[in-house]
Amino acid sequence: MRAIHELTQQDLADKIQVSRQTIHTIEKGKYVPSTLLALKMAAVFQVNVLEIFEIEESDWS
């Protein structure tokens, strides 16, 4: 999604006021962002949150 919009991790980070490391860990699946941050990312890409994030089976347990 970031690639489609031709944004670097840093560009996206600047747009939503987080560090590049935060974008990195989110993309790696190592960190689950808050609802607010997920909404901000979706707003930057002008899509629905569910189009960039999904809930996994393991999240239920």
Partner: peptide, 11 residues
């Protein structure tokens, strides 16, 4: 605060 203080850093 860090230079970029975001939710990952507070976590």
């Amino acid at each position: 605060k860090e230079r970029v203080e975001d939710e990952l850093i507070s976590d």
